[in-house]
């Protein structure tokens, strides 16, 4: 089976439908599947629920799908960088489910690992625990959180081989592996596709079993918060 597709639009062909749940990798603008997001915008798919740690910024990343009103609901831990997001949320056009960051990561991991729910101490005694099952283990209270199985996972990696084995780069790995595994189908965009055998089998971050389609392309890789120090003279 051939996993490599020529464009992001081709890689998503036949996978998109209105009202679907998409899990997206990325943290801030780092390691986001920017080509696939743009292709979903161009496809015009509507009523999306998107599980993603953040919601991009105005005009870039998932912010593009907010501008076109394609998103019905976000499942995120932090959305502070996006004015259009806030406008739609405060006006009631957009639903928002806040998940603690680690709970979101584990919900994606668990969903992909066949674990429908797990107990965590995160959020006990807060609004996050409202309406959730509580259970004590060894004298400590935990709440039940559920795994997420997404209709589609969209992921950014550094390198792939034709079998879909992936290598990520530095902190651009972030939510990409757990998002990938949560998808019934996972589409990955990479900076480079290398020949079979070029990746060290001991150094593969995500094995190709989780990866169904791959597209290679040019990435803008925008920096959200450029911070530097002065060179000492």
């Amino acid at each position: 089976m051939k996993k490599i597709y020529p464009t992001a639009a081709a890689a998503l062909d036949g996978l998109l439908f209105d009202g679907m749940l998409i899990a997206s990798g990325g943290f801030g603008l780092c390691g986001i599947p920017e080509l696939l997001i743009a292709a979903i915008r161009d496809a015009g798919t509507k009523g999306l629920t998107i599980a993603s740690n953040n919601a991009g910024v105005d005009g870039f990343g998932l912010g593009q799908l907010l501008e076109t009103r394609q998103v019905k609901k976000m499942i995120s831990s932090y959305v502070g960088e996006n004015a259009e997001f806030m406008r739609q949320y405060l006006s009631g056009e957009l639903e928002l489910e806040f998940n603690p960051q680690g709970t979101l990561a584990e919900r994606l991991r668990a969903g992909g690992a066949g674990i429908p729910g797990f107990y965590t101490a995160t959020g006990v005694g807060t609004v996050i625990a409202d309406g959730k099952e509580h259970h004590d283990f060894n004298g400590k209270t935990y709440i039940l959180e559920t795994g997420i199985i997404a209709d589609l996972a969209i992921v950014k990696a550094w390198k792939a081989d034709p079998s879909g084995n992936l290598v990520f780069r530095k902190t651009a790995r972030n939510f990409n592996p757990p998002a990938a595994t949560s998808g019934k189908i996972c589409v990955v965009e990479v900076e480079e596709i290398v020949p079979l055998g070029a990746l060290d089998p001991d150094s593969i971050h995500l094995p190709g079993i989780y990866v169904h389609r791959i597209v290679q392309g040019q990435h803008e890789k925008r920096i959200e918060n450029r911070t530097t120090r002065k060179k000492e003279a």
């Binding site: 943290f27 911070t227 120090r229 002065k230």
Partner: peptide
Amino acid sequence: GPFPFEGEEDPDLINAGKQTI
């Protein structure tokens, strides 16, 4: 590690505050 020197920022290397490191 510390913040990078100017010109050595890497978009794939940020902290939880989204600052280049």
